[in-house]
Amino acid sequence: MSKVVSLQEAIQEVKDGDTLLFGGIVEDRRPVAAAIEIVRQRKKNLVLLGTCSQSGDILVGGGCVAAYRGCYTSNGAFGISPNIKRRAESGTIIIDDIGHLDVSIGLLALQAGVPFIASKTCIGTDILNPAYDNLSKVAEVAGNKEMLPNKKYVLMEDPFFDMGTVQLIPAIKLDVCICHVQMAGEEGTVRIDGSLAFDHYGALGANKVIVTAERIVPESYIRQEPNRNCIPCTSVDMVVEVPWGAHPGQVYNYYDMDIPFLQEYANSCSSQEGFDKWADTWIFGCKGHEDYLDKLGASRLEKLRALPPYGYVPRRKGGVK
C-alpha cells in the first residue's frame, strides 16, 4: 500500500504538544523542509527531543517549541543555534540537558521496548544535578504527559559486574519522528547513506513516523537489497518526496552544505525580529517547498551537488587528491 502523501498532509498529523525527534544531526540530513512546514502550520507547544540544531532551531524561532530535552543546541561551525540561545538567555524556554549517550540509550530502550537501561553516562556531572532537573516542567507542557518518564534518572550500585554507581536511563518516548533520507520506497522502506544519526532508533519506536525523501522509488526496487535498508516499511506511516529537503544542510551522496545560507541564518536570527524577517522570506514568503526551491534558484543548487565517489563537493577543483 502506498503511503505517499504531500508535505502539508503529513505535517497536519503533527499535533500541538507532541514530543518530537528530528532525524540527522547538526545541519546534516535534517528535515528542514518539514520543519518549515511545521512553522507554516503554526504548531504549538512541541517538546523537541534529541538535539536543537538546524531544523529544531527553526521551530524554536517560529514559536512552535515549549520545551527542549537533549544533548546539543548548536549549529556546529555556524555557532550556537541562535533561536534557542536567545530564548534560553531570556528564560523563555524550558531546557533539560542530557548526554549524547543518554539520548542514544534512551532511544535504544524505546526501540527495544524496555523501560530503562543502566550505564555510567553522566556520573559525576551537572547533568545529574537535581537543581537543574527540568523534566517535570517538560512533562507539564507536553500534550501526552505519559510520554515523559516520572524521573530523570535513578542511581544504583551495579548488582551484576561491580561497576560501581550506575545511572538508570529511562526510554525516550516519541509521539512523532520525522526523518529526511536519501531514498524511500512508496510503502515506506528507507535507505540512508552516510551517518544514520538516531533515525534508525527513533523511527522504530515512535508512535508516528514521517519520512521525507530526496527520491521516492518503486518499493520493488528498494527491496532488491533489504540488507541495505535502514528503516522497515512497517515502522513508517507517511512518505513524502522532498528533493533538496535538507537544504541548507548536507545530504551524503546528494548535496553539500550551502555555507552562505547557513551563515546568513546564523547572522539573521540573533534577534526575534531577525528571525521573523528570515521567516517572511523563506517560510511565509513561500507557498510551499517548490516555491522555496524556485527562490533559491537552480544555479545555486547545482553548485551544491555532490561529486562521486566522495559524496560531497570537494573544495579543490578536480576533486580531492
Binding site: R29, A77, D193, G194, Y252, M257
Partner: peptide, 8 residues
C-alpha cells in the same frame, strides 16, 4: 561538521 560527509 561532526556529521560531515567528509567523515563518511
Amino acid at each position: 561538521s561532526i556529521m560531515d560527509s567528509r567523515l563518511t
